[in-house]
C-alpha cells in the first residue's frame, strides 16, 4: 500500500478503491471466522460453569428466587453425605465396567467387519444403526424385552434360572444389566473409531508381510496392532470420560434404582437438583464433576497431542 503514490494516473475502470474488508488483516478474518464457535462455547459452557460455581456457594431453592450465600457449606455437605461417596463408587464401577465391555466388544466388532468381505455391509449397517439410534429407543426396547410378562429376554433369563423378577428391579443385578445395555448402544463408538483406523492402514503393508510369509496372527501383531494402538488408547479414554458422565441411559432404565443401586454421580446431581430442589448442592456436584472432566480433558490434550494424530 505504501508504494501507491499520489502521482499515479487514475486507475482503470475495473479498479475501484480497495473495499473495507481488504484493509482488515488476515488474522482478524481468522478470529472472526471462529467467533461463532467461541460464542456458542461461551453461552452454553463457560457461562453455565461460572454460574454453577457461583450457585454452588449459595443456598438456592428452585421455586424461591432468593439466593443465600453459604460459602463452602454445599461442598462440605456434599462430601459428608453417604450418597455422594456411594455414588462416586458406583459411578467409577459403572465407568470401568461399561468401558471395558465396550472396548472388548467394540474392537472385536471392528476387526470382524474389517475382515469380512461379503456380509460386512450388513454387520456394519447394524453397527452404524446402533450408534445412530436414540438411546431412548434402546432403553424402551430393552425394557420391553425384560418385561416380566411379555419380555422375551426375561423369559429366556428366568427359564435359565439367571433371575426371577424384573431384572432392572433386582438390587444385585441392576448395575450389571445397565452396564450391558449401555454397552449395546455405545460399543459402536469404539467399533467405528477402530474401524476407521483399520481402514486407513494401506494394503501394501499386508501384502509386503504376506510376501515375507507372515501368518494372520503375525500380521495382526506386527502391523495392525501397532497402527491402532494410539487410537485405542484415545478411545478408551474418551469412553471412560463419557461413561462417567452418562446420565440418560441409566435414568431411563432405572432412575438410579432400585434403592440407590444404580445411582452414579450424574444421577445424584440430577436428583439433588430437581427432586430434592437443592439447586446449590446440585451445582456443587456439577462443579465437582466438571473439575474431574476438566482434569481429564487437560490430561487428554497433553498426552495425546491430538493435532498431530489427526489423519485426513
Amino acid at each position: 500500500m505504501a508504494t501507491d503514490t499520489a502521482g499515479d494516473p487514475p486507475p482503470h475502470d475495473s479498479v475501484s478503491s480497495p473495499r473495507w474488508h481488504r484493509m482488515l488483516p488476515e488474522s482478524v478474518w481468522g478470529w472472526l471466522s471462529i467467533t461463532p464457535v467461541l460464542l456458542l462455547y461461551t453461552i452454553v459452557a463457560l457461562c453455565p460453569i461460572t454460574f454453577a460455581v457461583v450457585a454452588s456457594f449459595h443456598d438456592v431453592h428452585l421455586l424461591n428466587p432468593e439466593w443465600t450465600f453459604v460459602g463452602l457449606s454445599n461442598y462440605a455437605e456434599v462430601f459428608q453425605i453417604d450418597r455422594f461417596w456411594g455414588s462416586m463408587w458406583r459411578g467409577v464401577l459403572f465407568m470401568i465396567g461399561s468401558t471395558l465391555v465396550q472396548f472388548v466388544v467394540g474392537v472385536w466388532m471392528a476387526l470382524v467387519i474389517d475382515s469380512l468381505s461379503r456380509t460386512s455391509r450388513l454387520v456394519s449397517t447394524l453397527v452404524f444403526t446402533s450408534y445412530l439410534v436414540p438411546t431412548i429407543v434402546v432403553t424402551v426396547v430393552f425394557e420391553f424385552m425384560l418385561d416380566p410378562y411379555d419380555g422375551v429376554v426375561h423369559a429366556a433369563g428366568s427359564s435359565l434360572g439367571l433371575w426371577n423378577n424384573f431384572l432392572l428391579g433386582n438390587t444385585d443385578l441392576a448395575m450389571a444389566a445397565v452396564v450391558v445395555i449401555s454397552s449395546w448402544k455405545f460399543a459402536a463408538f469404539v467399533s467405528l473409531f477402530t474401524l476407521a483406523q483399520l481402514r486407513s492402514i494401506p494394503d501394501r503393508f499386508y501384502e509386503a508381510a504376506q510376501v515375507c510369509g507372515a501368518t494372520r496372527w503375525e500380521q495382526f501383531r506386527d502391523i495392525t496392532f501397532p497402527r491402532i494402538r494410539g487410537a485405542l488408547a484415545v478411545v478408551v479414554f474418551l469412553r471412560a470420560i463419557f461413561m462417567f458422565n452418562k446420565y440418560d441411559v441409566i435414568w431411563q432404565l432405572t432412575e438410579g434404582g432400585p434403592g440407590s443401586a444404580t445411582t452414579t454421580m450424574p444421577i445424584l446431581a440430577f436428583k439433588e437438583t430437581f427432586q430434592m430442589n437443592a439447586y446449590g448442592r446440585g451445582n456443587a456436584i456439577a462443579v465437582i464433576m466438571f473439575l474431574v472432566l476438566f482434569a481429564g480433558g487437560v490430561l487428554y490434550l497433553r498426552a495425546m497431542n491430538p493435532s498431530q494424530e489427526v489423519h485426513t
Partner: peptide, 29 residues
C-alpha cells in the same frame, strides 16, 4: 487464514468433547 494462536484455539475447541450434557444442563436450567 493464518492467525496467532490458531493451533491453541483449535485445541481449545477440542475441550468441547468434555462438555457433559448433565453437568451443563443443571446450571443452564
Amino acid at each position: 487464514f493464518e492467525f496467532p494462536h490458531k493451533i491453541a484455539v483449535a485445541r481449545f475447541l477440542l475441550l468441547g468433547y468434555m462438555f457433559s450434557p448433565i453437568v451443563l444442563s443443571i446450571p443452564l436450567y
